[in-house]
């Protein structure tokens, strides 16, 4: 991490960083305060499973069925899919990012304020995991990117560009999919949830299982995402959306600003009637 760690501070940077940090902290708190999950989930604790089952019956069973077996619509569609075998990782991702429970029927569940506390999420995950084998919540070892080496970072970038950018964009700003669906922005998504998304393939996202992209490589991908999103920019970046935003700025700010100067330049200024005294 030479690139980030060797940044020396500009004299003014201290204040700016303080201000920026406060704002960032506030924003992060607002968005992810409940997101600090305890990874040491005791998934096979019977009390926990029972607690999860009770929460499930109240909050999830109306769509996913009393035993999480899923509910089909009359037309044969999927009202709520079966959750048997989806594993704790899927529950932790869906509930922990607030996607589940869904607020309303939509082409795609969206990230929002989680409804359940961490404890409750763990309990739900434990209950679903008890129904059938599935991917578990990842070890902290693979979601902690603070000790990543430069080589791993580069490798993570290669994996990211090969597997992820086509949908999520090169800085994780997100992208459009057919029929109103979309690949969401990866900005501010926790390391654990990034890992779980790759592992379980939520909604339209494909699965990138540990057999094909190893946990170490997943960690490198996460490190690259965090790096590319937190590195300094060369000015306001327009959300990383690329040339469309650049073109908008060129016209609105560029041509707009220069035309404003041109109007001033060509304006026939104030006149007076009296002659020089």
């Amino acid at each position: 991490m030479r690139f980030l760690s060797t940044h020396r501070r500009h004299p003014l940077a201290g204040y700016a960083v303080l201000l920026f940090g406060l704002l960032l902290a506030a924003a992060l708190y607002a968005a992810f305060a409940p997101g600090k999950a305890d990874a040491d989930t005791a998934t096979n604790d019977p009390a926990k499973i029972e607690e999860g089952r009770e929460l499930f019956l109240v909050g999830c069973a109306s769509c996913h069925g009393m035993n999480a077996e899923g509910i089909m619509t009359v037309a044969g569609g999927n009202y709520g899919p079966s959750l048997v075998g989806v594993g704790a990782a899927a529950v932790d991702f869906q509930v922990g990012t607030g996607r589940m429970p869904m607020a309303q029927s939509a082409p795609q569940a969206i990230r929002k304020e989680p409804v359940y506390t961490d404890e409750e999420t763990d309990a739900l995950a434990a209950y679903i995991a008890s129904l059938g084998p599935g991917p578990a919540v990842p070890d902290e070892e693979y979601t902690d990117v603070s000790e990543i080496s430069q080589e791993e970072l580069t490798r993570g970038g290669e994996f990211f560009r090969t597997n992820c950018t086509a949908c999520h964009n090169s800085v994780g700003a997100g992208g459009a999919l057919p029929s109103g669906r979309f690949a969401p922005s990866l900005q501010g998504v926790s390391e654990k949830h990034l890992y779980e998304a790759m592992l379980t393939g939520p909604q339209q996202m494909p699965v990138f299982s540990d057999d094909v992209i190893s946990p170490e490589d997943k960690r490198a991908i996460i490190a690259y995402i965090k790096n590319v999103q937190n590195q300094p920019q060369a000015g306001f970046g327009g959300g990383g959306l690329g040339p469309v935003v650049d073109g908008m700025f060129a016209w609105i700010i560029g041509i707009g600003g220069l035309v404003a100067v041109a109007v001033w330049l060509a304006a026939h200024g104030a006149r007076v009637k009296k002659k020089r005294s």
Binding site: F3, T6, H7, R8, R9, H10, L12, A13, A16, V17, F20, P232, Q233, A234, G235, F236
Partner: peptide, 13 residues
Amino acid sequence: PKDAEIFGWFSLN
């Protein structure tokens, strides 16, 4: 410095 940072932007630029 080339890699200094301010407001999340490159200070030098």
